[in-house]
Design a protein around this nucleic acid. Sequence first.
RNA 1: GCCCUCGUAGCUCAGGUGGAUAGAGCGACUGCCUCCUAAGCAGUAGGCCACAGGUUCGAGUCCUGUCGAGGGCACCA
Length: 564
Amino acid sequence: MPQAAIDRSLRAILSDLGVVVSEIHLERPRDPSHGDLATNLALKVASELGRAPREVAEEIAQRLNLETAGVEAVEVAGPGFLNFRLSTRTVASVLNEIAAEDKDFGRSSEGRGRSVMVEFVSANPTGPLHLGHGRQAALGDAISSLLGWTGWKVHREYYYNDSGRQMDLLALSVRARYRALLGQEEPLPQDGYRGDYVLEVAEALSKEVGTRFLEDNSDQALEEIRNFAVQILRAEQDRDLSDFRVHFDEYFLESSLYKNGLVDKTIQDLRATGLVYQHEGATWLRTTEFGDQKDRVMIRTNGMPTYFLPDVAYHKNKWDRGFERVINVQGSDHHGTMARVRSGVRALGLPEGYPEYLLHQMVRVERDGQEVKFSKRAGSGVTLRELYEEVGVDVARYFFQMRKADAQLLFDLDMALDQSDKNPVYKVQYAHARMCSIFAKARVAPEEVAADVAHLELLREDLERELVKRLGEFPATVERAANQVSPHVLSDYLEQTAGFANSWYHAGNPTRSPQLAVLVEDEALRTARLALARAVQIVLRNGLVIMGIDAPTRMVRKRDQSVE
RNA sequence: GCCCUCGUAGCUCAGGUGGAUAGAGCGACUGCCUCCUAAGCAGUAGGCCACAGGUUCGAGUCCUGUCGAGGGCACCA
């Protein structure tokens, strides 16, 4: 990459000047007259050297070996910026790198094969997944993928509570519906689950067991009902996720923490720290020791643990399984658990800031400017499946990823259902498909497109240069998105890159400027442009792969909203 | 009351570590095309970056406060 050569040259000069700098920030200036790349380096180190920024910049510019840095010109501007104009050869050589690396272009090794766990979705099996889970599924999957591309060994995990009060509530809700179905009215419990899906489970139950649970109020009967309901609802969630192309390496049951004695072990270990005390009949942990706002109850007066205890046990277990880095993707309503869990595991000797959290805000859906609120089946909200069956999985995944997690997400159904370039998802996919259609028309296999530097130097149109530069930024963009745990950084890049690619393509429309078409008569130029199209294709495809979105070679428009 | 996140164009949102004239999409407006290189293309207008202070050569970005939106502050999950 051109950045790397300049970076090396600058570092050499700096060490001659006797300055150490951890990172050199090279950016693409907005204003093209400021060159292809710019750095504020001189401004940064000027004070350390006790010299004027412009003077330092001048000296760096003078010492720079243009040839080695792959630069055609360097100039000092403004308060002391260094602006670089890349040589055409440097710009062009990017395309060969992209073609050579192909499916791996954009991968890096920053993670050095270390393990990271991403825990996400983690919904309890009490009903269908809703939009919040969808956002989380898309975000968690994309983050996992980004980490994989930057050299981490990623473990996707789903944790769920298969015991406890919510489950009992579910069982009672199902039982009430089941009995009502068989003519014996039973009121839903307070805070019971009201969605139509509970009725579906009840119907299935009655088919399975007949009237067996009509009179039986035993705990054992209730547990059977619970297990039955959980099995059905878990299966439904699995289908919802799998059809959404989200898959996990491991499903972790809360109940296993009790079965394996990890909860008991945790409370013992905590007691050994001396941070545990009794107060008004409950057992507390002094989490304020680690900056929590108040101490937390671990075991209630009635002898039952709160959720805090298994949470700590679970995260200690993550650590013990070798995950020194863990990212929990959760709704921002879980904000309160963050300080608690971190304090709890710190008491057990784990490092500060473990685990990491990515909290996302709520999702709203709008149609015709009106908020869509209801799902009869789910009882409340809109289910994930309802959404992606209407707009398609690609669109749903993209929309969930295209905003930063800590901002609320407005899901605009009118935009989502638009099948033109106005829809960012299709814009990127069209751009990819257009590149594919060029190869089809030229009757060449994309893998066989090759051009040497002499050809590539012919790419002198502004749009072409701009495109090449952008394509070269793909690996750095993937890294930034991964480091910031922010998939929207990537979707933003793809959308803009697709925009440039589309403009480039349209510019060569036969009725406008046929000399700008990819498939021009001049064979050398044609070769060069095919190589550019190939690079665009690779970058867009790799980006979409990371996002978990199809990169179609041909777009087929759906006639209407009915299922294909 | 305390804590966290957010506040940028009419709308939805980007704005690497503080850097040069604050960007994109939608919508609006103006041209162009009816080509088959795709369900159009090109361009224009639109901003007190919520507000008030501060830090500094320089603030949308950092600090303090105010206002507004969302969420969290359980022996619930």
